[in-house]
């Protein structure tokens, strides 16, 4: 039942996205609060993931004498899967719950009603801007996350294996192909869309009372995370099909 409502919500989003007036200022404001304000968190997580991934893989690769494969291996796994997924999950936690709670409390305190009576379409002003912002900012955050994670991995290799910056990144880009980066980027847009849509959906239709706000924020995160994995799963299939073509 909820999926049906969410589908309807999504259709409504796509209907209103292209309809005037565009709330450009609010969109920029949301971009800032979604993009810039999450950068630090995404950066730290990415950096740690890069470090940990490299440190954990190192002994195994060493056993096979294949430590020189580290850049290719880490590069591909971060760009294809770990970067987008970790960034999206972190953002689901930060942005998804934030949007859920914000819109939820706006609903509960009748701010959304107030907007509507003052002639502003709250769906456009609140939902469209936020969903657009997440859809465009998450891919950017993923790029930052990837870059920082790779840098973290490089640091480990540099300190433990004395690998130069040029060599490390040369090997990373040697192993990467458009078949890695294109699906990952497309996927990131859908991740952003999912985070924004679910957060807004949960907040916009928040139940009355402060408990309702809590539930909205919480279920936004849970539902988004689940959705992210499903999208990821589908993305793998779709990417495979495109590869075969």
């Amino acid at each position: 039942m909820e999926i049906g409502e969410l589908t309807y919500f999504t259709i409504r989003f796509f209907k209103e996205v292209f309809r005037r007036p565009y709330e450009f200022k609010e969109f920029l404001r949301q971009c800032y609060s979604i993009g810039n304000r999450s950068l630090l968190l995404v950066g730290i997580t990415g950096f740690i993931i890069g470090l940990v991934l490299t440190l954990q893989t190192r002994p195994t690769l060493m056993e096979f004498g294949a430590v020189s494969w580290m850049p290719s291996m880490v590069g591909i796994s971060i760009v294809r899967e770990i970067g987008p997924m970790i960034t999206a999950l972190v953002c689901a936690g930060k942005i998804g719950s934030g949007i859920g709670a914000e819109l939820g409390s706006m609903r509960v305190t009748e701010q959304i009603d107030a907007m509507e009576v003052s002639g502003t379409n709250p769906f456009k002003y609140l939902v469209v801007t936020r969903v657009m912002a997440t859809t465009l900012m998450i891919p950017l955050l993923v790029i930052f996350g990837d870059a920082i994670a790779l840098y973290g991995s490089y640091l480990v290799e540099h300190l433990k294996g004395d690998v130069s910056f040029a060599l490390y990144f040369n090997q990373v880009f040697d192993s990467l192909e458009f078949g890695d980066i294109v699906p990952a980027t497309v996927k990131s847009f859908f991740f952003g869309l999912a985070i924004g849509l679910v957060g807004c959906f949960k907040g916009y239709y928040c139940k009355k009372g402060t408990a309702g706000v809590g539930i909205a924020a919480n279920s936004a995160v849970v539902f988004t995370s689940l959705l992210l994995f499903i999208i990821d799963f589908i993305a793998v299939f779709v990417a495979d099909i495109f590869y075969d073509l």
């Binding site: 409390s105 305190t109 009748e110 009603d113 107030a114 907007m115």
Partner: peptide, 10 residues
């Protein structure tokens, strides 16, 4: 319309 809890955009 004056809303019950003021409904200022916080």
């Amino acid at each position: 319309f004056l809303f019950q809890g003021s409904a200022l955009y916080d």
